[in-house]
């Protein structure tokens, strides 16, 4: 296993520890807004265990993936929401 895994978060490349969750990778990169709420507020993980759905991001093109339930992988592309949900 290599020392780090290369992923992109909103197009910026990051090298993170293998085996960590996407949520952890984002939090460690100081990402505050995983998604935007209906009212446009920044939201980030609450429950950490796949229940609250607050940490949903787009992973490799698939929308609404729970960042806390997915482990980082080499080349993974993560996109957070920048605008309000309707």
């Amino acid at each position: 296993m290599s020392e780090t895994v290369a992923i992109t978060i909103d197009a910026a490349e990051h090298h993170v520890a293998p085996g960590i969750s996407v949520a952890s990778a984002l939090l460690n990169a100081s990402v505050a807004s995983f998604r935007r709420s209906r009212g446009g507020d920044a939201r980030a993980p609450l429950c950490g265990m796949g229940v609250c759905q607050e940490c949903r991001v787009t992973i490799d093109g698939a929308a609404h993936q729970r960042a806390c339930m997915v482990t980082v992988a080499e080349g993974m592309r993560i996109v957070t929401a920048t605008s309000a949900e309707p």
Binding site: V16, A17, G19, I20, S21, A23, S24, A25, L27, N28, P45, L46, C47, G48, M49, C68
Partner: peptide, 14 residues
Amino acid sequence: FGIGGAQALLKSGT
């Protein structure tokens, strides 16, 4: 975070 939530995040690398 949740209390258990922080624990879960810590264990997953936060």
